[in-house]
């Protein structure tokens, strides 16, 4: 309740100080950047990305060479100790991030591309097509988190392409739902009808009338799904179905060394903290974006 009920019945507010409008998602990015959590998340994310990309060039050893006794304590020679086979933990941590980033981002992109396409079509077509698409996606939704990937891994073995595809596929239903909901809302507005009335083709309506109006929620969803992709990829490695030995990978390192959790927690701490920092930083960015998204509406309401 506000002065706005008067507004809804008649003139809506004119924004006072808004610069000429940029693309919606750019606007969301700019507003998200104004929040501290977005900056913190971004900085941590970039630092971890740098470690994943360039850490290998400063690593003291190669990731697979045996440099000392298994489970050696941290020392000058190996700062973080050695793992269950006597390999240098620091070296493996520096090498083990790239796979998490590459697989996580690929899975998110796959899920987003397919999810958004299906959601757009379902939201615009409505009726039978909509029903069919959403029912099929409900089936995918019924397999919780990593279970769908495990089903296929049990049959085809732990292949990386399969992991990426399955993590992407399990994101599809939720991305499609978000896209569909946003699309339905936009399609209900008259400007879509106005475009159809002058004969703009369906494909162009989806791409030029609908998509630009839902880009912000999709951006937020992408951020969120990136977090979950990383979580799922790490989890699959942790239970032994992601990266395979002797590869260096944060999730796999936790799996390999977990027998030492009581005697030698050092070995686990480094990869656990890396994964934790990575998922928290990704989620901080996603949360910043979603706050900025809500903020857009609030702003115009108060202007």
């Amino acid at each position: 309740m506000s002065l706005e009920p008067e507004v809804t019945s008649a003139e809506a507010p004119i924004s006072v100080s808004r610069a000429p409008r940029r693309r919606e998602w750019v606007q969301t990015l700019v507003e998200a950047w104004a929040l501290r959590r977005t900056k913190v998340g971004f900085v941590i994310f970039v630092i971890l990305l740098m470690i994943a990309l360039f850490g290998r060039f400063v690593a003291p050893y190669t990731p697979t060479e045996f440099v000392g006794r298994p489970f050696s304590d941290p020392s000058a020679a190996y700062w973080l100790g050695t793992d269950f086979l006597g390999r240098d933990v620091l070296t493996r941590v520096l090498h083990g991030g790239l796979s998490v980033f590459v697989l996580g981002i690929s899975a998110t992109v796959i899920g987003t591309v397919f999810g958004v396409s299906l959601g757009l079509v379902a939201g615009y077509a409505r009726r039978a097509v909509d029903e069919a698409i959403m029912r099929v996606l409900d089936v995918v939704l019924a397999f919780p988190s990593v279970v769908l990937a495990m089903l296929f891994v049990s049959i085809l073995g732990p292949r990386l392409w399969l992991i990426v595809l399955m993590v992407g596929v399990s994101h599809m239903p939720r991305i499609a739902r978000v896209t569909r909901a946003a699309t339905v809302e936009v399609v209900a507005r008259d400007f879509v009808r106005a475009a159809a009335a002058v004969g703009v083709p369906r494909r162009k309506i989806l791409l030029y009338e609908v998509l630009p109006n839902i880009s912000s929620p999709l951006l937020v969803e992408f951020g969120l799904r990136l977090t979950y992709s990383i979580i799922m990829i790490a989890a699959l490695s942790f239970i032994g179905f992601g990266m395979q030995p002797p590869a260096a990978d944060w999730g796999l390192m936790i799996n390999e060394n977990r027998i030492a959790i009581i005697t030698q927690p050092w070995v686990l701490l480094a990869p656990v903290l890396m994964i934790g920092a990575l998922t928290i930083s990704a989620n901080l960015m996603a949360d910043g974006l979603s706050r900025a998204l809500v903020g857009i509406d609030r702003d115009t309401a108060q202007a």
């Binding site: 989890a235 936790i254 656990v272 994964i275 934790g276 998922t279 928290i280 990704a282 989620n283 949360d287």
Partner: peptide
């Protein structure tokens, strides 16, 4: 926000 971002096994190990 932090708990939601951490994989369950990371929470468990911690």
């Amino acid at each position: 926000l932090s708990l939601a971002s951490l994989p369950e096994f990371v929470i468990g190990i911690l």
